[in-house]
Design a protein around this nucleic acid. Structure first.
Lengths: 341, 341
DNA sequence: AAGAAATTTCAAAGCGCTTTGACAGCCAAC
DNA sequence: GTTGGCTGTCAAAGCGCTTTGAAATTTCTT
């Protein structure tokens, strides 16, 4: 069933039917009703490819998924996607996911853009001095970045959470509890959020004249195993840290196991604050010692970015170009006063 | 730059240029060279939308992502996607992801199929008597199902793991260790894999004249929290089970916490076997008590399904229609002989 | 050397939709 | 009773590509 057949069935021209369907005003309401009714009965669906050819709009958002043999998938990606999806489904948008080797992202992005398959781009896993920004700016296609790129002029549309502020606040809380020996369990070093979180910790410590030793920092994929390894390392340091900042609840999982295995008590011997992306997978409140966290929903960010992207494509009003979300600091049982030496 | 301009530039017809580009034999080699050269110089890229409208081929695989406000994302989805992506990137294919409310999947699938945006479909999260099968069969579009649909004639292309066999084997191992009180911590009841795993357990038990009590079964989303709750429930039963079968390492995570909190020792007081999808997130060998698991890589399944789907679209040789992968049973420390009463 | 066959190229017809510009039909205004 | 402005509808022209069927050119037969 296509437009032509449908219009013949109704005894109308294709023009009228098309207009009725797309909400143009110059169509009699009675006619529109008839058309809508016929669509329901016949199950007619416009062919997207044709629509796209005619309008130049694709009704879809493109994103590059970093993947390669041997490249580990990241839980956070799925959760973010769920957020994007939640919003997209409301607007009958979909995603075109172009899988690409992480080393080939710039080219992949370009291919995606000129393929004509998408009318907006979304980019995540931002790095310091991210080369994709220049590429995005050169394209004449709307885009929104999740995160920012440390070291680049912030003149691009983004949605980010205040990573620095989050870790600054968390560090301050621990300082107030009397801690002086800190460690930071971070995500991969080149990623923007990792850089900013580190800066947050460092600047809070600096206010008290403290510094974060290189040995008290780990940069790794955010998995359970890496959390375990990093914490084991910290616990073996001569000056064992008593306060741990942790970039993900997933890392915290492994870290806590290391704490337990060492016979130490979380919230007493060791205080830990983790960043919580609100993954359904893992709730910090149901840990055996409920976790103090900095919280910001990754999924909500996905929803918002989809809103902005779709809104821009549909020309639905202006959106703020740059949003920086504050995180919440939620105190639970994994933090306590520094133990007496 | 479009075909017309390019052909004018070359003094050829659009036909000839198009054929030269698409490798048709009826083009003089010298002419083809000239065309290819011009493409390089001008950076011409065929418009995908037009190509698609003309050919009906889209170079992409469609899949429906279950999502809705309040619908929790599932870690396993991301990992599977990584596998699909790993293969797709080799063939310059991409995905079109249509987010859809889980209640609306059949319709979403149909929309995706007739949108002309994809030329093959992939379906997961199979249920018993899954209504999507009839829909898929009625479409004339290649598809592959991940999993199977219990209760439906198995006459559709699928890739599944031997869930029943896996849990049968796991149960047998525990029986051999002398266990007689079992519990099963399963995924959502309506899902096919959950049904088969349950059957595997039941039939192994039946061979020893044992039955699985209703109270010793839980069906829930596979998250840490649900694992904790289910295990807490099991531990409070008057006849406390000593052998636990668990549908995911994520569930096991919470379950083990409950065991620890109850002051019991894993592998001694309680034996546990979990199914391991080989998530990078969570390695069973690095649990504090390394986990005995039934193992099958979800990501590998993704790769294989992408292979079949893309191969079919490209008409690259026949593929087996139905594949059933065996799982491995890997014994680690979370299983041990039944404790003396 | 003329006709048949094979090779190379082309004009034009779609693919299914949107959008432009025109045209009836109708009512109010001068 | 002509002019002008609205409404609702339509025919036709794209959008950029592939593909059909025919024409032009070259090569092979006899």
């Amino acid at each position: 069933m296509n437009l032509k057949q449908l219009s013949e069935l109704l005894g109308l021209s294709q023009t009228t039917v098309s207009r009725a369907l797309n909400g143009y005003p110059e169509v009699n309401e009675a006619t529109r009703e008839r058309v809508l009714q016929a669509v329901k009965e016949t199950g007619y669906r416009p062919n997207k490819a044709a629509q796209r050819l005619a309008t130049g709009k694709a009704g879809s958002i493109g994103l590059v998924m970093p993947t390669a043999p041997g490249h580990q998938s990241d839980v956070h990606f799925g959760e973010f996607l769920a957020g994007l999806g939640e919003e997209a489904v409301r607007h009958d948008f979909h995603f075109v996911i172009m899988p690409a080797d992480p080393d080939d992202e710039v080219a992949a992005l370009r291919r995606l853009a000129i393929s004509g398959n998408v009318d907006a781009l979304f980019v995540a896993y931002m790095r310091g001095h991210d080369p994709r920004l220049a590429m995005l700016k050169s394209l004449s296609m709307p885009y929104v970045v999740h995160g920012r790129s440390f070291g680049s002029e912030p003149d691009y549309p983004y949605l980010d959470i205040d990573n620095e502020g989050a870790f600054y606040d968390a560090t301050r809380l621990l300082l107030q509890l009397g801690h002086t020996r800190f460690a930071l369990m971070n995500g991969p070093m080149h990623l923007d959020f990792a850089i900013r979180r580190k800066n947050g910790v460092i600047s809070a410590l600096a206010e008290r004249g403290l510094v974060l030793d290189e040995g008290c920092m780990s940069h790794a994929l955010m998995t359970d195993e890496q959390g375990l390894l990093a914490m084991e390392h910290f616990l073996q340091l001569p000056e064992r840290p008593t306060a741990i900042l942790c970039s993900s609840t997933v890392l915290a999982l492994g870290a806590i196991r290391a704490v337990n295995q060492a016979g130490l008590r979380l919230g007493e011997d060791i205080s830990l604050i983790a960043h919580d992306d609100v993954l359904p997978l893992l709730k910090p409140e149901s840990f055996s010692v409920p976790l103090t966290t900095t919280r910001s929903s990754l999924r909500a960010a996905g929803v918002r970015i989809a809103q902005r992207l779709i809104g821009t494509v549909k020309q639905a009003g202006p959106f703020p170009d740059q949003e920086l979300w504050k995180t919440e600091l939620i105190v639970r049982a994994s933090t306590g006063p520094v133990p007496r030496a």
